[in-house]
């Protein structure tokens, strides 16, 4: 699966490289756009020293970690939201006759590495925040675990949204609400949100494990909402369950695919 993905991604990248100027512009543009986000955070902290109980480097840490995961998944899996067009036009047929996973073929379709600008920006933010934070080395291991968990959760959400398109072919917007909404939500400390929303994204859609719960552990904080301590480590399990659910939903979706009459 990884091999197929890499091969197809490489072919699309080569095709995109035929237009080097537009490629470079897209990378720079993505980087600049993401920098605006960080600008907003910095402006907020110009007037205050804490946002919902979190300091500037702490907020930047959460922002960076969430965005590394979000942007890289957006780049590698995000194209799955084109599935509704493929279903309506019947072009999904072409994926089904090839000896490769339909999920891989859908996610890699028209892959462009231009969003690498956003990923880079998030890596820089995380690096700066970590340098300022001085996280004790015993807790640093959680950082890569947390980013990997977040990637799996985002990829699963995108896949679930894609699988839903096989049932309701007219709801790409609903799906964007899940994926992009989830990405937006996870950028900030959850203590800025209401208690009921946070409960929902902890126990129903496991968005809290992208960043908030493991982040609390890395930062050595207690949860202002008072959730039990084991939840800090429940991320990988939640991600795994969500991934299984997404895989099942995708399979069912493909079996329901009905092509078109002509």
């Amino acid at each position: 699966m990884v091999r197929t993905y890499a091969l197809l991604a490489w072919t699309w990248t080569r095709a995109a490289a035929a237009y080097p100027v537009s490629f470079a512009l897209m990378v720079v543009f993505g980087f600049a756009l993401a920098a605006v986000d960080v600008g907003v955070i910095l402006v907020v902290f110009a007037n205050t020293t804490s946002l919902a109980g979190f300091t500037r480097p702490e907020v930047l840490f959460l922002y960076g970690a969430a965005n590394i995961a979000f942007s890289s998944v957006d780049m590698c899996v995000g194209n799955i939201d084109r599935i509704s067009q493929h279903i309506k036009a019947g072009t999904f047929d072409a994926f089904l006759i090839r000896p490769a996973s339909t999920w891989v073929q859908t996610t890699v379709d028209r892959f462009t590495p231009t969003r690498i600008g956003r990923v880079l920006q998030a890596v820089i933010v995380l690096g700066v925040a970590m340098a300022e934070l001085d996280v004790p080395w015993q807790r640093v291991w959680m950082v890569p675990v947390m980013i990997a968990t977040a990637m799996v959760i985002f990829a699963s959400l995108w896949t679930l949204a894609g699988a839903l398109q096989f049932v309701v072919t007219d709801a790409p917007e609903v799906c964007n609400a899940f994926t992009y909404g989830g990405g937006q939500l996870s950028q900030y400390p959850f203590s800025v949100y209401g208690r009921d929303l946070v409960r929902g994204v902890t126990y129903v859609v496991p968005l809290a494990f992208i960043n908030w719960q493991p982040g609390l552990y890395v930062l050595g904080r207690d949860d202002p909402f008072g959730t039990p301590g084991f939840l800090r480590f429940a991320g990988p399990l939640a991600a795994l369950l969500l991934a299984l659910l997404a895989a099942l939903a995708w399979r069912q979706g493909v079996r329901r695919y009905r092509s078109t009459g002509s």
Partner: peptide, 18 residues
């Protein structure tokens, strides 16, 4: 069932790989 935006040659190469 070929890749709409790719040159024919690239489509064939993809098929070889797949």
């Amino acid at each position: 069932t070929l890749w709409w935006d790719l040159p024919l040659k690239d489509s064939f190469e993809l098929i070889r790989l797949l």
